[in-house]
Amino acid sequence: MPEDRSRREFLISVLQFPCSAALVAVCGPLATAAAATEDEASSERYFGMGIQVDKCIGCGRCVRACKTENDLPEAPFYFRTWIERYAIHADGRVDVDSPEGGINGFLPRESEGEVVRSFFVPKLCNQCDNPPCVQVCPVGATFKTDDGVILVDSDYCIGCRYCIQACPYGARFLDPRTKTADKCTFCYHRITQGLLPACVEVCPTGARVFGELKADASPLRRLMRMSRLQVLKPSLNTEPKVFYTELDGEVR
């Protein structure tokens, strides 16, 4: 019953608008423009990423490539992607670290107590299909493109930082140079011309797999066929398009 479904979706989206009831009437034309964004699903070019946790060696090449490719501040802060190292101890204690985002790799941990298992986890913007950052942006400066990528319009962003608060993954930061929000774009300027995102390009072990989620055949589709997938913080219903394989339950 597609009609019923779209009606239900419309009702849900109306209910999501704070104080919409009053405002839809006043600003009808604008509201329909907003509703038009929902109609994106048909595009086959719909990007996602797979991350094979058991292949990550924590070399930090991706973090460095990301900083270079996207002209990020050189500082040991402001990361569009970073690597976390987990060490789970026999007594259940969990140590996590990410020195300088892992940009210079990792030194051996100064360990106390027996470590049961330890591994690296690359993190980046999850390009959520139900993005809380887009929901809260007051002016429409962050948005989801037709290919599913969440972008920031730095010429339009007012720098209120509500999106940074709304992101459950810590994927956003305020660029100190432009005073606007910034985050991973899947290297939008690369993927739109057929190149891979910089982090995927330089990953030496193929831990990062980039591709089209809806294509008949793509490296990502293959990975999704062959693996058990997990996303970060599924309970928040953000519907990430970054999927992890072999993800440990301790990773948040």
């Binding site: 989801k144 972008l151 010429d155 339009y156 690369r190 390009e201």
Partner: peptide, 27 residues
């Protein structure tokens, strides 16, 4: 802005700007 709302609640122009940033890693 003129291109606002063409493809959704944002400046359509911003997508073009994002797609035209310089490439550093050649592949």
């Amino acid at each position: 802005p003129p291109s606002f709302g063409e493809t959704g609640h944002y400046r359509a122009e911003a997508v073009t700007i994002a797609a035209e940033l310089p490439v550093r890693y050649a592949g």
